[in-house]
Simulated assay, not measured.
Amino acid sequence: MVESVRLSLFEWTGFVGAPQVFVGIDNYVRIFTQDPVFWRAFGNTVIWIVLSLIIPLTISLVLAVALNRPLFGRNLFRSMFYIPGVLASIAVANMWRWIYNPNYGIGASLGEALGWEWLADIQWLGNQDIALYSVFIAFVWQAVGTNMVLFLAGLQSVQKDHIDAARIDGANAWQVFRNVTLPALRPTMVIVIVLTFIGAIKVFDLLVGMTGGGPAQMTQVLALWSYQQSITNHEYGPGNAIATVLLVLTLMVVLPYLAWTARQEDK
């Protein structure tokens, strides 16, 4: 991390023997004022974070509550939802790229079978308007299971006596969840939100495997653009400046979380 921050203050191609020229904050001025891709990547990263904190978390919580009840085949369902979370992201990217393939993917097959030509004609990863959200669907499929397991662990801390007392008092299922279950899940919720934020802000593998940042940089994010600037374009100064921006954004969430956990341990 220290070396990355240092390199953000230099101009360097990354080649052995190439000079490192100190330019101060010029790389930061460059990415903020002269690099239109940076702001596209920044905007996409913000969109990805916001969606990640809403959609996967909601689905994970619903699944955890549903699979925490006595249910036939409950362990099988838990395993099915969790398996995507242990797969390598690049493998998930390859699989979903096949799913979205306009020639033999699911959309093309369903469109042909049902006579819906419009479905077969959709370019899931080639359409600039929907490519980012198509990749995000793959992210949701992979992330839901891991968050579900965390919520299931948190649900074990909910006192059954409290739930029974609420039901005796006439509370319905929603009231029990809102007034008993959800408050007990607050520590777990904080952990899941922080981990989801970190996973969202550094998303990389899925986009590399599915779009490479295209089409026309419409699926570009900060982590991927930092990599491409440094490794592909041999612009280590701007690339590490972007990485430093990512570091600062991450620390803005992680440091308060660490302070909160320290206070919880002292109680």
Results as ranks from 00 to 15, higher is better:
5 V>C: 02
258 L>K: 09
258 L>V: 14
228 Q>S: 07
116 W>T: 00
103 N>T: 11
99 I>L: 11
248 V>W: 00
93 A>C: 09
132 L>Q: 01
31 I>H: 01
209 G>D: 04
178 R>E: 14
70 P>Y: 15
164 D>R: 15
161 D>G: 09
141 W>H: 09
157 S>H: 13
245 V>E: 08
77 F>A: 09
182 L>D: 08
198 I>M: 13
79 S>H: 12
254 V>R: 07
32 F>L: 12
254 V>I: 14
241 A>C: 02
154 G>R: 01
221 V>I: 09
127 N>I: 02
99 I>Q: 05
182 L>Q: 08
165 A>Y: 04
216 A>M: 11
228 Q>C: 00
41 A>F: 02
84 P>F: 06
86 V>Q: 07
14 G>N: 06
204 F>E: 07
4 S>C: 12
65 V>T: 03
105 G>S: 06
218 M>A: 14
12 W>Y: 06
56 P>R: 02
213 G>I: 04
163 I>F: 04
230 S>R: 01
210 M>L: 03
64 A>T: 01
164 D>L: 14
19 P>L: 14
207 L>Q: 03
165 A>T: 14
153 A>V: 01
66 A>P: 08
158 V>Y: 00
116 W>C: 03
21 V>N: 03
196 T>F: 06
2 V>M: 01
38 F>Y: 10
141 W>A: 02
210 M>P: 06
115 G>T: 11
193 I>F: 09
27 N>F: 04
246 L>C: 08
3 E>N: 13
123 Q>I: 10
143 A>Y: 13
149 V>Y: 12
139 F>E: 06
153 A>R: 13
